[in-house]
């Protein structure tokens, strides 16, 4: 989801690079997704973005949501994910990315434009 920000290479996700990636949160790997077509957790939308893109192209109208929003805004899952990314960035001493993630965490707490 955030690959467009350019600071999340596959290596940075802390899992195998190359074609068979594994989600650090639920353990689903590329092969597993290709076999079943089902994801294991919300974070997989990021981990397997490359595999999901063709599904969107063939079956979806666009790649951005334009419908209903939960009243409480994006879910805590977003916060969980950012915390997870922050921990990984600090672990590999990538302080520049860590600072960007902290900025994003701060942005999330601002009121959303309606």
């Amino acid at each position: 989801m955030n690959s467009k920000n350019g600071h999340e290479s596959e290596d940075e996700k802390g899992v195998d690079s190359g074609s068979n990636r594994k989600c650090p949160y639920c353990g689903l790997d590329t092969k597993g997704f290709r076999t079943t077509g089902r994801l294991g957790c919300p974070l997989d939308y990021d981990t397997f973005a490359a595999e999901i893109a063709p599904v969107f192209r063939s079956s979806q109208a666009a790649s951005l949501h334009v419908g209903k929003w939960p009243k409480r805004g994006p879910s805590r899952f977003e916060a969980l994910k950012l915390q997870f990314e922050l921990r990984l960035a600090i672990e590999r001493q990538d302080y520049e990315t860590a600072a960007m993630i902290r900025d994003r965490m701060r942005d999330r707490t601002k009121p959303r434009e309606s």
Binding site: P70, R76, F77
Partner: peptide, 22 residues
Amino acid sequence: DYAFSQELGYLSACPTNVGTGI
């Protein structure tokens, strides 16, 4: 607390349901 992302909407087990989930 629903799994919801700004870009992809309601997150579902199958990518063919993501977004509105409808």
